[in-house]
């Protein structure tokens, strides 16, 4: 069952063009040129209940705008979205009780008070009864490992701790759908890891549907089986994360270290040379020719060390973005 269904979603922003300098200001005084920017163009996808979907794309691709439309913060210019039977931008209270959005850049906790006070505020806002509220806070604070921090003012918490509290605050009403926007931005590796683990566990246990955007490929790789990739406001890929490499031509990387330097033209005969640093070379080889190429290399060249790796996912995705730009 699709809990989220997005069809032909579009969003345009209009803004003023401002020329630089004093002359521009004076010109602006009398005439303002209005420009439009298409932030999201004709995006469609669907998400099943309990899925974790990664929303990927370079900066300014329209990820956050999409999430904002799905949470009813923004009105789309055209297109439809239905989430659990609701149209988000109608902003019905009943709908608002079913989801939560956490944005890495925006906070809802009261800065000068302990986080527990902000939780209590959310309890009042979402009208949760005492027993359920207590249980939720207890269980989640245990899982997030913030029990001892409950009575510390938010401004005294570290960035990672604060983010955990933000997540906890967003889960007080046990939403069925969770939108996470750049959660791990600026966090250290350990905090990132912990938040990732928590989300994975939480999703498994509660079958909460999650859409998340992140700059860190690791977040996405660890949490999502499926990715939706947006570039320049357009959907360019929707499918399993593991199939992205396949889409990009199924290549493998051969890293070899020769005994002494091997001339580049000799190497080029086996595949595309991606990188060459002294004795070490990285070759790009089609997957189906891997076996023969490898044995050919071993038999003709003096190789000391030899490894086979996947093309990093980041690279494939970057390629997808690039392809998108080229085709424009």
């Amino acid at each position: 069952m699709d809990i989220i269904k997005v069809e032909h979603l579009c969003k345009e922003f209009s803004y003023y063009k401002k020329e630089t300098g004093l002359q521009g200001s004076l010109k602006n005084l009398f005439h303002r040129e209005i420009l439009t920017k298409e932030a999201v163009r004709n995006v469609s996808f669907a998400v099943e209940k309990g899925e974790i979907v990664g929303l990927l794309g370079p900066n300014g691709a329209g990820k956050t705008t999409t999430l904002k439309m799905l949470s009813g913060i923004l009105f789309p210019t055209s297109g439809n979205a239905v989430i659990d039977g609701f149209i988000p931008w109608e902003r019905k209270n009943e709908f608002k009780r079913r989801f939560s959005i956490v944005m890495g850049q925006k906070n809802q906790l009261w800065w000068d008070l302990p986080a527990s006070d902000s939780f209590y505020l959310n309890k009042c806002i979402y009208d949760i009864d005492d027993a359920a509220y207590r249980k939720t806070v207890e269980e989640l604070s245990e899982l997030l490992d913030v029990r001892e921090l409950m009575n510390v003012q938010v401004r005294r918490l570290s960035l990672g701790e604060r983010m955990k509290m933000e997540i906890l605050a967003a889960l007080i009403h046990r939403p069925q759908i969770l939108f996470l926007d750049e959660l791990t931005i600026g966090l250290d590796i350990i905090s990132q890891q912990k938040i990732r683990d928590f989300l994975q566990y939480y999703n498994e246990q509660t079958k909460t549907t999650v859409i998340l955007t992140s700059h860190y490929m690791r977040d996405i790789e660890a949490l999502c089986r499926r990715a939706v990739i947006i570039s320049h406001g357009q959907l360019v890929y929707d499918g399993e994360l593991s199939k992205i490499n396949h889409l990009m031509g199924d290549k493998k990387l051969l890293t070899l270290k020769g005994i002494g330097e091997i001339p580049a033209e000799k190497l080029a005969a086996f595949g595309r040379v991606r990188e060459k640093k002294g004795a070490e070379t990285v070759l790009e080889v089609p997957k189906d020719k891997l076996r023969e190429t490898a044995s050919a290399i071993l038999s003709t060249l003096h190789v000391e060390d030899f490894t086979v790796t996947e093309v990093p996912l980041e690279e494939s995705i970057a390629l997808i973005f690039k392809k998108e730009v080229d085709s424009l």
Partner: peptide, 13 residues
């Protein structure tokens, strides 16, 4: 100084 002028023109309302 010039930036100040620009700013006040920008916020003329």
């Amino acid at each position: 100084f010039r930036m100040g002028i620009e700013k006040s023109l920008e916020y003329r309302a």
